[in-house]
Amino acid sequence: MSDELHSAAIPSSGGVARWLPWALLVALALLPVVGAQLGLDYYVGFVRRMLIVMIAATSLNFILGYGGMAALGHAGFIGVGAYTVVALVDAGVSSAWTAWGAAVLVSGAFAALIGAVSLRTRGVYFLMITLAFAQMLYYLAVSLSAYGGDDGYGLYSPLELGAGRTTGDAALFFWVVLAIAALVFSFASRAAVSRFGHALTGIRDNETRMEALGYPVYRLKLAAFTGAGALAGLAGALLASHNNFVSPSTMHWTESATLLVMVVLGGLGRRWGAVLGVAVWLVLSEVLKLYTEYWHWPLGLMLIAVVFAAPRGLAGLFDDRSSA
């Protein structure tokens, strides 16, 4: 049997696709060193935030792009992860790994519960019910006066990473985030071409047929939704450490919408889609903010342009060029 079909999934750019991720990883790993020498600490921080958002976007791309589940409440899980860190720090936990690990578990548990209910609906109703649950989490956070309520909660002392180092060490924390982001990205890329990923795209394309083929459709979707929620929670936990601050606004519905927008912008269900979308969106926002206080409208215009001119997202544009 031939291998053509599987290599054809990466059109004609096989060589580039092989070394590009590694080159990118090396370049990013060098950034804190170079940045410190050039006095670009702010930008090192910016890239760190970008990497964290990429984790969340990658998880959303997995359920939306591969699984066809249009969830508009992903920021809720980011919030759960962030507040788990807050709760643990407030209770005296100082280890980053404990706090982040707990965030993954707690947000995964929330995702499992919310998914169990939401996945009984379809389409717009699914979109709305995931939004509704995120709103519930939002109001819950507002009401937690012990953690600052509406005003948010400041994390004043950095978390311990082990060997006497903390998240206050900007370069080290950067590398930790980079390593986690790289792991999440590789895992998502691999999962997409695994049995699980294939089953998920099958469900996206023809749910009834998958059920009739013998697939436990609901359980598969729930597993994906739970995993994505857990990863979003991880992003939330890292974001809490990155900002040293957590507030309910993390969970506002426009945050969920923005995440959705970034994924679609980059290219739904494409390996590099989420990463590309986050990079373009955040870099553009940052650059525009430098020049004008009216930095939203060009982004809005870009979204409209993408919907009409590049319906498969920016990653889709690259495909066209390489196969043309």
């Binding site: 508009l72 389409g123 927008v261 206080e293 930095w295 982004l299 809005g300 870009m302 979204l303 919907v307």
Partner: peptide, 25 residues
């Protein structure tokens, strides 16, 4: 957008929101 899927509609009209907010500002 009428003929497009819901996701495309969400994205494009979210773009409109961003433009509208800046215009009002």
């Amino acid at each position: 957008l009428y003929a497009r899927d819901h996701l495309a509609q969400v994205i494009a009209t979210f773009g409109v929101i961003l433009i509208a907010d800046d215009a009002v500002k």
